[in-house]
Design a protein around this nucleic acid. Sequence first.
DNA 1: CGTTTCCATGAAAACGGTTCCACCTTGGAC
DNA 2: GTCCAAGGTGGAACCGTTTTCATGGAAACG
Lengths: 335, 335
Amino acid sequence: MARAAGVSVTTVSRVLNATGPVAEETRGRVTAAVELLDYVPHGGARSLITRRTETIGVLLPDLYGEFFSELIRGMDQTARLQRFHVLVSSAHSGRAEVEEVLRALRGRVDGLIVMSPDVDVAPALARYGETLPMVLLDAEAGRLDAITIDNYGGACSMMRHLVGLGHRRIALLAGPARNLDARERARGWRDSLGEAGLPAPPELCFAGDFAEASGHEAGAWLAALARRPTAVFTANDSMAVGLLSALREIGLRVPEDVALGGFDDIPIARYLSPPLTTVRVPIAELGSRAMQRVLSLLESREPAHRHEVVPTQLVVRASCGAPAARTSTDPTIGG
Amino acid sequence: MARAAGVSVTTVSRVLNATGPVAEETRGRVTAAVELLDYVPHGGARSLITRRTETIGVLLPDLYGEFFSELIRGMDQTARLQRFHVLVSSAHSGRAEVEEVLRALRGRVDGLIVMSPDVDVAPALARYGETLPMVLLDAEAGRLDAITIDNYGGACSMMRHLVGLGHRRIALLAGPARNLDARERARGWRDSLGEAGLPAPPELCFAGDFAEASGHEAGAWLAALARRPTAVFTANDSMAVGLLSALREIGLRVPEDVALGGFDDIPIARYLSPPLTTVRVPIAELGSRAMQRVLSLLESREPAHRHEVVPTQLVVRASCGAPAARTSTDPTIGG
DNA sequence: CGTTTCCATGAAAACGGTTCCACCTTGGAC
DNA sequence: GTCCAAGGTGGAACCGTTTTCATGGAAACG
């Protein structure tokens, strides 16, 4: 740029990066020229020599709902603190597509956060982890670094809550079969029933897909059951929303006729009628931790392949008929 | 890389970019080497000479809710078709922060999409538009390119609907005062009342902030009004969710005691009880169009400073007491 | 006053691609 | 048998930074 600022490029670099000594007067001239010419250094040229792009790539499954906003927000916030940027890429159905995007991303990011709950994809990721710092989100990690929601634990605590309230026949509105989160939550349902000495027959399980519509469909299924369950554990809140609306149409009351427990604690959960008892997942924190993780991987190059589990928390509201909520907004969580 | 592939860098470049002629046999050798070495070209080096990063920066306000997932999804999808990447950056409260991020982004993106509904920020953007292709989203554009939701039109159609149903006293649950979307929707409310020969007194307007909680607060406000309105136009669906829950607690029925109209048509709107009459905003399309726009700006360098308006659509459900919905999922929209 | 140290600065190499240009080969036209 | 065109390939310049090394001058030290 401003070699027209009367100095060498070396000096400009020194001023801009605050490396090496520069005379006060020189610095003044440079910053003035920068301001005047509205100069911004060329990121590509810089990363060419530095071998860093200061960018983290984020691969997400088809993004919808409040979940991903939250997640990206958490990531972006912590990335920014270290002056890193976030390159997002979404909608990866199959393994082939994931690999394609991964290729395109390499060479322009310093690290990768990959969320790919589809159990088929996970194995394909292993080889990329060797060449590029990478953190998996909610995926079977193998030898890679990973951060996972405590799906199993959360499901168990919800089930304990339901069983504790006297429910003996608890249905599961499950998520996609190939989704790891869904599987773990289902496992929690099954194991908890077993522990309580209760059966977990397949006819008490409805295969949803995490979207509201499938929750709505589950309403008809529930109504048609020979022996109706007294409670339903819904593998995520979105489906609970759909189910709730279906139950109302059918004329079943919640929680009097059927108790309902969700998962995720999306913001609207507390505003449903009745307010939804659910399992809170600290989504933004999940994103933030993943980002921290990949950034620290960048520094240390330690291939720690550590699995971190983010805890969940049961949030009791009215939809299960537990001792009533004190306030409408949020009974159990103080802050 | 594979100068060890037995060819020159020139040839490798030609193979990878499909420029210039290459013998079939040579191409084979190169691709084999690429595969073997798992080679990916260095994006920085490429962009250094090409003057293109194949990346579009996206600046968003603090992101939460389903809206931004949808928006980013639309952007990412169309960007991918042209092999472009998306660099997101969120949470820009003030003008200073926006400028800071803008600086950091320049030099590493080919174009910019900026969503900044805060009316204070818009003027500061003008100077950046000259140096970098830029499209504004829901902002006062001045001489810049912009794509806007038809907030005013949507609000008017909702108001016409309410007036047509016989409502004469229609309150507004407004959004943030400095938010352009909120302003336009409020303007639609005011003008529509005027057209119908009805008053729009300030006491019929509650200042919310687009979040669920403020909708909930509005419930108490509504109940305390001396002469209660027969309908409420809520400036977005999230606040409608909060208000709906508050009304239920208070014991007011929707739509019998109060009719409710929202804005956005977020996915859960149809699953509320009653299903929410609202104004549909094609969010993903908004993102997609913005991306198309900035990409075409890249090609043509025509500073078209054109303002594009994305139309909205009234979706009639049960919350206003209009002639009943036929199905629970979506009465008026076919697809 | 000579020597050493340190500060301030610039010259030049390096980073890894793309692209212009030149070169060589081959096949067809005359 | 020449000449020319076109296909296939490599050499080298260039893009804009960072970084190492060298240099000149001033200050500190003996």
